[in-house]
């Protein structure tokens, strides 16, 4: 039972992270291009509105709305959970990635453009890789948050790690033990993820010692 919960937790977090990163990076890119060229005014406004609304409302509420209203016809709780957390984390990732884009010197884009590359070619080969690399540590923290937050999915009745103590407890009436086990499971997962983060940081840190944030004790 714990294993099934663990699987669901990670599955929801993974799908949510994929949605969140895609959405977030796109929103940050729209913002960046608008800032540099002034060309995407309306999309930028829409993104900012989205970010404000999502960050300004509790995720439990968002989950309820998607589960009971938007996807009322659909009983795949795991997917709805993943989508909700993905849409939610997209707003946070957008903020992280925006800072990542802003940390990049304007000269990088200018150099690309001066060589005859288009804005998009320069974004793709020069700007995005640096922006993503600069925001990897906070992005990974966001993912760890996501793993923990998915326990909320338990509220709308999907089996997930955080929900299982409740189930076991209702049978065994032993309050403390199941909660402790769940806590230990979360802790182990988060510790493993943190370890992975350090490995990634080391690997990416090699490419350039001057770019802030990523290099770890090098």
């Amino acid at each position: 039972m714990y294993l099934e919960g663990l699987g669901n937790t990670l599955l929801i977090a993974l799908i949510a992270a994929a949605i969140g990163i895609t959405l977030g990076v796109i929103m940050a890119m729209v913002n960046y291009i608008n800032k540099k060229t002034g060309k995407l005014k309306i999309p930028t406004k829409i993104c900012n509105f989205y970010i404000t609304v999502v960050r300004g409302t509790p995720v439990v509420l968002q989950l309820m709305i998607l589960y009971f209203v938007v996807f009322a016809f659909w009983d795949n709780g795991i997917m709805i959970g993943a989508i909700t957390f993905g849409l939610n984390s997209g707003a946070y990732v957008a903020e992280i990635a925006r800072a990542g884009f802003e940390s990049i010197d304007d000269g990088q884009m200018e150099a690309g453009r001066s060589l005859g590359l288009s804005t998009w070619q320069t974004m793709r080969t020069i700007i995005i890789p640096q922006a993503v690399r600069n925001s990897l540590p906070p992005l990974f923290n966001e993912f760890i948050m996501l793993v923990k937050e998915t326990s909320i999915v338990g509220y709308v009745g999907i089996y997930d790690l955080g929900k299982i103590p409740g189930l076991i407890q209702s049978r065994t009436f032993d309050y403390l033990f199941p909660l402790l086990i769940a806590a230990v499971f979360y802790l182990v997962v988060v510790l493993i993820l943190t370890k992975i983060l350090h490995i990634i940081e080391k690997k990416f840190g090699k490419s350039d010692r001057n770019q802030g944030g990523v290099t770890n004790g090098k």
């Binding site: 000269g107 990088q108 200018e110 001066s114 005859g116 490419s207 350039d208």
Partner: peptide, 18 residues
């Protein structure tokens, strides 16, 4: 297309960091 034939060198070098 035209910029490809106009090289530019900046005060801050602007080499691609990545």
């Amino acid at each position: 297309i035209h910029r490809q034939k106009m090289g530019m060198v900046f005060q801050q070098f602007n080499l691609f960091n990545n």
